[in-house]
């Protein structure tokens, strides 16, 4: 059959669901081993965070699309959680190999790392369903759930989201070319504009690097 944009999107959706069917809603045994190797075991905080964002995402999705679609939002979030655990495991395996380390206590107890990784996973699911595909399940075409909507849902700074994108792409080989292109567009949008909004952690990094270099002049404020 000729490939139409809707059919292509549906294929992507089916591919994502197929990949995530074998993934679990809970941390795998391998992940639990990493958690147990930590100086401070992060498992409880990870499970509480996933549960907390489940309610937040479901509510925000329903507010954006309509109260009748709350369960659809919950279903998409659950797919995102599966991808989150799958990518986290892959990341830790590659870091263990690269650093010859098994205690990832600092990273796995970093709230921003987990929030960014989870947001990126849910963004992949949302982008896969996309605007056209979302019409196929009846959500209104006027509701723009495309990036950076996800940053508002997770109350996440754009630059913190940016920090996980490349490692996410490295860790998940089954991402489609379209999805990698989407994440790359997110990166560009963040670096070109979103990361320069007031309150961005990027300004702190610039300041710290200047201080480290012994320079005292302040970074330009966005207003300038």
């Amino acid at each position: 059959l000729p490939q139409t944009p809707v059919r292509a999107a549906m294929n992507n959706i089916q591919q994502l669901i197929m990949i995530l069917n074998s993934a679990t809603d809970k941390p795998s045994d391998t992940l639990i081993t990493y958690f147990n190797n930590c100086t401070v075991n992060p498992q409880d905080s990870i499970l509480k965070r996933v549960e907390s964002f489940h309610h937040i995402f479901k509510k925000k999705f329903a507010e954006a699309v309509g109260q009748g679609w709350a369960e659809t939002g919950a279903q998409r979030y659950r797919l995102g959680v599966r991808l989150y655990y799958r990518v986290m495991e892959s990341m830790l395996k590659s870091e263990e190999e690269r650093l010859s380390v098994q205690n990832f206590s600092t990273l796995l107890n970093d709230n921003i790392f987990h929030t960014s990784l989870l947001a990126c996973a849910v963004e992949v699911v949302m982008a896969t369903y996309g605007r056209n595909a979302s019409q196929s399940d009846g959500t209104s075409a006027e509701t723009d759930l495309s990036f950076p909507w996800i940053l508002n849902v997770f109350d996440l700074k754009a630059f913190d989201f940016y920090k996980v994108i490349e490692s996410f792409i490295r860790a998940e080989p089954s991402l489609t070319r379209e999805m990698i292109k989407h994440l790359e567009r997110c990166e560009h949008r963040i670096l070109e504009s979103l990361a320069w909004q007031s309150g961005s952690p990027l300004f702190d990094l610039i300041k710290q690097s200047k201080e480290r270099e012994g320079q005292t002049d302040q970074p330009e404020t966005t207003s300038t």
């Binding site: 690269r98 650093l99 080989p173 991402l175 070319r177 990698i180």
Partner: peptide, 21 residues
């Protein structure tokens, strides 16, 4: 992923990006 421009250096990964080393 061939089209994607990987920017992390050889010795860099998610641990460095979140100041864990």
């Amino acid at each position: 992923a061939q089209d994607y421009h990987f920017g992390l250096e050889e010795g860099e990964g998610i641990s460095e990006l979140f100041d864990c080393n």
